[in-house]
């Protein structure tokens, strides 16, 4: 495996002192796409929020390229090379597409052209306000903006939310390609397992905040029963097996 970009060790985190993620360890290597899977409420989004600094961990460590991120602010982490595309896409409805690419932190120049290269459709929408874009276009802008920052680590949260699967089927290969050519590590949260596993190298499956399954993507895709069980619950599987 290539050099590690992100390393999470024994992470426990949550809101209002109630742990949503418990004792989670995972890693993302350079150029690697890792899928974080699991039913809703399993703790996937919380994990991403801990990595980008929005939620503080109760225990455990988050390490980016060998550097412990404890005590680092959200914006400082972004400047260190973490690009987080949150569920709400992280865009600003009042700003145009082009303005989103001028919105770098101090001293940063976003590689607007790279984004247009990956998503040619965006170039034509340059002067359109984000609020007027369709859901799919917004998602392209969100991912495009993240890529234009040339991040070390890309966090993608539920790209498929509210979008037809077709759009996501086009977005994800772009991410795959980008990771390969740039060496950026990608941690992908996705509820459409099948889609996620076609582009990912490895996958982790969370259930009720705990890691229940981890394997190479092909292996996970082949392991239908285990996947289903982690989604539909072991009890249900057990009941149904008893019924049939």
């Amino acid at each position: 495996m290539a050099a590690t970009v992100l390393e999470i060790e024994a992470l426990t985190a949550g809101y209002e002192e109630a742990a949503v993620v418990r004792d989670l360890s995972l890693g993302v290597g350079e150029g690697e796409v890792v899928a974080l899977l699991g039913a809703n409420g399993a703790g996937k989004t919380t994990t991403l929020r801990v990595i980008s600094g929005i939620v503080h961990p109760m225990a455990g460590r988050v390490v980016l390229a060998g550097q412990d991120l404890a005590g680092t602010s959200i914006s400082a982490r972004a400047r260190m090379g973490i690009a987080h595309v949150p569920e709400n896409r992280g865009l600003f409805f009042g700003l145009t597409v082009a303005e989103h690419f001028r919105l770098g932190h101090r001293g940063e120049r976003l590689d607007e052209e790279a984004a247009y290269r990956h998503f040619p459709a965006l170039a034509e929408l340059r002067d359109r306000r984000c609020g007027l874009l369709s859901g799919g276009e917004q998602q392209m802008l969100a991912v495009g903006r993240a890529l234009a920052r040339h991040p070390r680590l890309l966090l993608l949260d539920e790209l498929s939310l509210g979008l037809a699967p077709l759009i996501v089927e086009r977005l994800l290969p772009v991410v795959r390609e980008y990771a390969l050519e740039s060496g950026c590590g990608v941690l992908l949260v996705e509820q459409h397992i099948q889609l996620a596993l076609t582009v990912a190298d490895r996958g982790y499956v969370l259930s009720h905040g705990e890691l229940v399954l981890q394997d190479r993507a092909e292996a996970l895709r082949g392991n239908r029963d285990l996947l289903m069980a982690s989604y539909f619950g072991e009890r249900a599987t057990a009941t149904l097996e008893a019924d049939t």
Binding site: P165, E169, I193, Q194, L195, T198, R224, L227, Y231
Partner: peptide, 24 residues
């Protein structure tokens, strides 16, 4: 009923994504 829904192909593909049919 739960068993009917559990076995419904549309439900499985809604959860596992468009290409789920091939797996399931």
């Amino acid at each position: 009923k739960p068993q009917e829904v559990r076995g419904d192909q549309r439900v499985v593909s809604a959860y596992l994504g468009g290409a789920a049919a091939e797996v399931s």
